[in-house]
Amino acid sequence: MDLGAFSVSLSVRDIEASRKLGFTAFGGDPAQNWLILKNGDHMIGLFQGMFEKNMLTFNPGWGANAQPLDSFTDVRGLQRELKAGGVEFLTEADESGSGPGGFLVLDPDGNPGLFDQQR
């Protein structure tokens, strides 16, 4: 199961204060209250006022530098595999769709995981 690019998405109170963590801006728009930061192979997302808890984020179809991958497991395929394994879903991707889509799961300890396919 290839989950795509991985980052930690942090729910922050002040995006400008939080961007001083030693990472370089890589994407996003602070005016829209979100910013993607990178330090070497490590990536984090800062999100101000968008969700309550920090979460693990997976981007099927993207490599570590946000480059499109030629081959990847579609988010709907990942959803089917996780469902078969008994994972609890908070939201689901439309199984009849294609292209962009996503779903949100909880791990056994209640930590959210976002699977967000952009293409």
Rank of each mutant, 00 (worst) to 15 (best):
Q117H: 00
W34F: 13
L56E: 03
Q48K: 14
F115M: 06
V8C: 11
D94I: 00
S7H: 06
F58A: 06
L56T: 10
K38M: 04
Q79G: 13
H42K: 13
E16C: 00
A64R: 15
T91W: 01
D74R: 00
F6I: 07
L21H: 09
S98V: 07
D109M: 04
E81V: 11
P68R: 12
Q117S: 04
F6T: 09
G22S: 03
P30S: 04
N39Y: 04
E81D: 14
L90G: 04
P60L: 05
F47K: 04
T73Y: 00
G77N: 11
L56A: 09
L10F: 14
A25L: 05
Q67C: 01
N39H: 07
D29N: 15
V87E: 05
D74P: 08
M55I: 07
K38L: 00
L37D: 08
G22Q: 03
A84I: 08
T91S: 07
K83H: 13
K20D: 02
G85K: 15
A31T: 12
N59T: 10
V12P: 06
A93L: 02
A64F: 14
M50Y: 08
K20C: 01
Q79Y: 06
T57Y: 01
V8P: 09
F6S: 07
G40K: 10
K20W: 01
L56S: 05
V12Y: 01
G49H: 13
G40M: 03
G28I: 02
L114I: 10
E92I: 01
D74A: 09
L69M: 13
D116Y: 09
F58I: 06
Q32P: 13
Q117V: 01
P68N: 06
G113L: 15
D2Q: 14
R80S: 12
K53L: 15
V105M: 15
R13M: 05
L3S: 03
G110N: 03
F115K: 04
S71A: 15
N54Q: 12
T73E: 14
R19T: 14
K83I: 09
L56N: 05
P100H: 05
M43L: 09
P30A: 07
G45K: 09
P112L: 00
G102K: 02
L114W: 13
E81G: 10
V87C: 13
G22K: 01
V105L: 15
K20M: 00
D109N: 11
G61P: 05
F103R: 07
D70P: 12
F23T: 03
M43R: 10
F47R: 05
M43V: 08
S7N: 08
Q67S: 06
L10Q: 12
N39E: 07
G113S: 12
L37K: 03
R76E: 14
D41F: 13
G49F: 13
L78I: 03
V12A: 05
W34T: 10
M1G: 13
L37V: 09
D109E: 13
G4M: 10
I36M: 13
D2H: 12
D94Y: 02
Q32H: 14
I44Q: 03
A25D: 12
G4Q: 11
L3P: 04
V8F: 11
G63N: 12
G22F: 03
